[in-house]
Write a protein that binds this DNA or RNA. Structure first.
Lengths: 252, 252
DNA sequence: CGCATGCTTGACTGAACTCAAAGTCCGTGG
DNA sequence: CCACGGACTTTGAGTTCAGTCAAGCATGCG
């Protein structure tokens, strides 16, 4: 299986730095609201009530971890300086890299909806981050529009899902992707109160293929293969799952 | 090139419906706040000020379009009933399917940051959506926490980016992915005020590979190939882009 | 009943993975 | 100061997996 790569125990190797070395002033440990708005290139409306708020900064050396999946959500971070890597490590040790955040990018947004970060972030170069504390985002006394809050909470959840599916369908071979797709469909139907073992797919083979990044023929062949193995029973879009465990094993 | 598939001009074909036919009561055209919270499985705090707010519903027949990339953002939608397909159609006609939203899922969140939807959504079955109007999310008089608003705006932007990269690296061959990766890096450095034609990659070949879903050897080979063609000049992590146009052409 | 759409299967081909070996660069420790 | 080791990179050869092209079948609709 590809992408099974040992995570180096030693500190991450750094390329020679040809860029001008950063002159980090020791004194500057705070950023104001306006600087954060500029970094993010925020073009929405603000009311100016928070202009005097000061955000704490956080310095990182190359190779250091900024956020991990093990720690609870404690805020969002805006990159002021440096490059980082956002990734999810699978159980088999393979790593899926989601993005390479840089100046102006946001970190930690996947931690909002479950109060736990959903990905790992490490610094590739020396970094300077600005922290937006969780307390500033969710203190009950501050916000006053429940609808807005609910909507954004749901948006954050959506991000997590997207990352998860993005990661799930990476670097597996086609039959495994199809197996995983079916397992996830089964779980979704289950969550809605339908049978986990019998459901009707609403989409075409082509739609599935375009979702999993394989051709429709490959989807069809994978269905047939899983059928022949007795793991599922396919009849057009009617799917019966005969062994969920076997299906899961196929996902590796 | 794979995935170039004609979009059927005829109405989308529907599978035979074995599930119980929906009894749509004509009268119920509104949902209250609590129902939306339940659908989303929202577990955060609400203050109860909006409990009397009524949300408009929207019915869709199978094959109908719920949202398109051409229309301006006018709100978020929560799926109450039915299955849908979220996709982005590329210039070459290929379609990338992002997700298959179902009951309780959120639609339209990618439209927040640019005030324009970033993906197309069509109904695969008959659907029932609940609309959360844009006016309820951004009316200046309602929210009072600028920090929270800014954070969520940035989160929404992050979703768009993720969708874009997810879509961008789909269904292209490896050399094209690498070319696109370099082009995007170049643009990011440019946006930060550095040279668009010369930059140092902060990440390893393996990181790039794990991001693009190819092996590190494939990344290396692609770099060499682009170098041999005179499109770029590679020296370890130092990249010079000799012809941005040629690089772009390589992405097709 | 015929057409359009979707699904399945087969044969062939080519792109990307795997395994392997050698070379480069950097930081560290003798 | 230099040699060594480790991490990274490049390149090659063989193999496997999935895409392409093509044909035929099934199904629902007009």
């Amino acid at each position: 299986m590809m992408n099974v790569q040992a995570v180096s125990s030693a500190a991450r190797w750094r390329p020679p730095v040809h860029q001008p070395t950063l002159k980090l002033e020791r004194d500057e440990r705070w950023s104001d609201f306006q600087e954060v708005l500029n970094l993010l290139r925020f073009d929405g409306q603000v009311h100016g009530l928070n202009n005097d708020y000061q955000f704490r900064r956080r310095r990182l050396k190359a190779g250091q971890s900024a956020l991990t999946m093990t720690q609870p959500f404690d805020g969002l971070y805006v990159v002021r300086l440096g490059s980082l890597k956002t990734s999810m490590t699978h159980v088999d040790g393979s790593e899926h890299v989601l993005a390479f955040p840089m100046r102006g990018d946001l970190l930690g947004f996947d931690g909002v909806c479950k109060n736990k970060y959903a990905s790992d972030v490490v610094a590739l170069t020396d970094c300077d981050l600005i922290k937006i504390p969780a307390a500033e985002l969710f203190s009950p006394g501050r916000g006053c529009n429940d609808i807005e809050r609910m909507a954004y909470w749901a948006i954050s959840r959506e991000i997590v899902r997207e990352q998860a599916t993005y990661a799930a369908f990476h670097s597996t071979k086609s039959e495994a992707r199809v197996a995983r797709f079916l397992r996830i469909q089964s779980e979704r139907f289950t969550a809605m109160g339908y049978s986990p073992n019998r459901f009707t797919l609403p989409m075409t083979r082509r739609d599935i293929g375009n979702h999993l990044n394989v051709t429709l023929e490959t989807v069809s062949r994978a269905f047939s293969a899983l059928d022949n193995l007795g793991i599922i029973a396919v009849e057009r879009r009617e799917i019966r799952i005969l062994s969920l465990d076997a299906l899961r094993n196929f996902e590796s």
